[in-house]
Simulated assay, not measured.
Amino acid sequence: MYDFKPAEPLPAAELYRDLLAAAEALTAGEPDAVANMANVAALLWEFLPDLNWAGFYRVGPAKDGGGEELVLGPFVGRPACIRIPFGKGVCGTGAESRATQLVEDVHAFPGHIACDAASASELVVPVLRDGATIAVIDLDSPSPARFTAEDAAGIEALARLLADRI
């Protein structure tokens, strides 16, 4: 049995070091992207307090056949939007810009897509392979300004680890 949940609250540097080690252990040598995303979504849920959604949107063909868009991947939380166009909402903006989006107040974010009305802040980190977005890691919280630069750096390190595993 795996038990990767931290025993107690940890300083951010230790928390993300342990999260990265757990993700490394669970995904090393596993070629199935869905299995790896599912386990990492569960790790995020276990490790990070004050979340109401943690998971992935992956890049896939657009439903209408024209280009690509984000398609819901493994996650923990309430049911979510299934498809998000590049450049739309926090996730689509992160995917298109290939840059981390740390949003203190999602209601003030132009074009925010409210999949869960309880979300107040969001952190989206693109997963890049060969310079192209292949997925985004999406974290939502019901608390305003929940995410910090330390959270962004920790999730960016996780995205780099996962770039060849999802």
Rank of each mutant, 00 (worst) to 15 (best):
Y57Q: 05
G92L: 11
A25L: 12
G29R: 07
V71Q: 10
N39M: 13
G29T: 11
G65L: 01
N52Y: 10
A22V: 04
P144G: 13
A132C: 08
D138H: 02
G94P: 06
P9G: 10
A152S: 01
R165L: 11
H107W: 12
M37F: 12
P79Q: 00
A7G: 14
A41N: 07
P11G: 09
L123C: 05
D130F: 12
R83H: 14
P142S: 09
M37D: 11
P6Q: 05
A118D: 13
A41S: 14
A132F: 12
E8D: 12
S121I: 01
D130K: 15
F109Y: 13
L43S: 03
L123H: 04
P126Q: 05
A33K: 00
V124I: 04
N52G: 06
V125S: 08
W53R: 08
E156H: 07
A23K: 01
L123N: 06
E14I: 13
L139W: 08
A28Y: 14
I137T: 03
D164C: 09
D105I: 06
A152F: 08
S143P: 07
G60I: 04
R58E: 12
E30R: 15
L15M: 14
D116P: 08
Q101W: 05
S97I: 00
D116F: 04
P142K: 09
V34C: 12
R160D: 14
L26S: 02
E24T: 15
S97R: 14
D64M: 05
A153I: 09
Y57H: 01
D3H: 13
R98I: 01
K88F: 02
I82V: 15
L161C: 10
P6G: 01
H107C: 12
P74A: 06
D18P: 00
A12W: 05
P49R: 11
F109K: 04
D140T: 01
L10S: 00
G131Y: 08
L161S: 06
A38Y: 10
T93K: 03
S119V: 07
R165Q: 06
